[in-house]
């Protein structure tokens, strides 16, 4: 008996190792399932729901759902595209995302998804929340205006750095990323070399004084859309 599982995504046969999620198997097969909170190397979290696919008729997050024999997965459908666009739209209006002056622009996964989905402007009203920044750390800057609550930093700090610098506090619209100190990032043991500093998909955790060092045209998503690196394996 083969230890490989066979299932289909949009009618294409995909093989998966036992224990692999739909998203992991899709990546290996060169099929891009959009995602934000998921990141290779981090424990799947399933919070952003951008990777939602239809599995045997029911919506599931591809980053947490293990692949199973004979699954019929729908990925690139009009319905799912609309669903994903709505999520990205809501993430934009829920925070304060000013791409035009954000140093993450061109390297930002949220922005890149919006471009991939053809979102020119949000359709929902801006909420303009009152969010704080934390500039106290000598090397690292937190701008909560841009945080999308993906928990990558929470997971990376806890699971990869063994530190647990970040955690969420609050609920609903008041939920925000917090640090394991009284108030300030500089009172934590976060270090510039920590993995947690590198995983933010947006410009919420940035290394200080890097700014706009990479010119326009040479940034990650300037020439190729997000996901194309996965799709390239399929060529």
């Amino acid at each position: 008996m083969s230890d490989k599982i066979t299932f289909t995504i949009d009618g294409v046969e995909v093989k998966a190792a036992k224990g692999q999620t739909i998203l992991q198997a899709a990546d290996e097969a060169g099929i891009y399932i959009p995602r934000l909170c998921n990141m290779s190397g981090l424990i799947p979290y399933g919070s952003c729901r951008v990777c939602t696919v239809i599995v045997n008729g029911r919506p599931q997050s591809a980053c947490t759902q293990p692949a199973a024999e004979g699954m019929i997965v729908e990925n690139e459908t009009e319905e799912l595209l609309t669903h994903r666009k709505n999520i990205v739209d809501m993430l934009f209006v829920e925070g304060n995302h000013y791409c035009m002056s954000c140093e993450k622009s061109g390297n930002c996964e949220l922005q890149a998804l919006a471009y991939r989905f053809g979102i020119a402007a949000p359709k929902y009203p801006y909420m303009f929340p009152n969010r704080s920044v934390d500039a106290t750390h000598p090397d690292i800057f937190i701008d909560r205006n841009r945080c999308i609550l993906c928990a990558r930093c929470v997971r990376a700090s806890r699971d990869l750095d063994g530190k647990g610098v970040f955690e969420f506090v609050g609920r609903g619209p008041n939920k925000s990323i917090a640090v394991n100190a009284n108030a300030r990032l500089k009172d934590t043991n976060l270090d510039i070399t920590d993995k947690a500093v590198d995983v933010c998909p947006v410009g919420a955790i940035i290394k200080k004084r890097v700014g706009f060092a990479v010119p326009i045209g040479q940034r990650k998503y300037d020439t190729k859309p997000i996901g194309s690196e996965i799709e390239a394996q399929n060529k």
């Binding site: 140093e103 700014g211 706009f212």
Partner: peptide, 14 residues
């Protein structure tokens, strides 16, 4: 005010 200084040349030109 409150923004990191390296952001300013890109921000104020708006």
């Amino acid at each position: 005010q409150g923004r990191p200084f390296w952001e300013v040349p890109v921000l104020v030109q708006r």
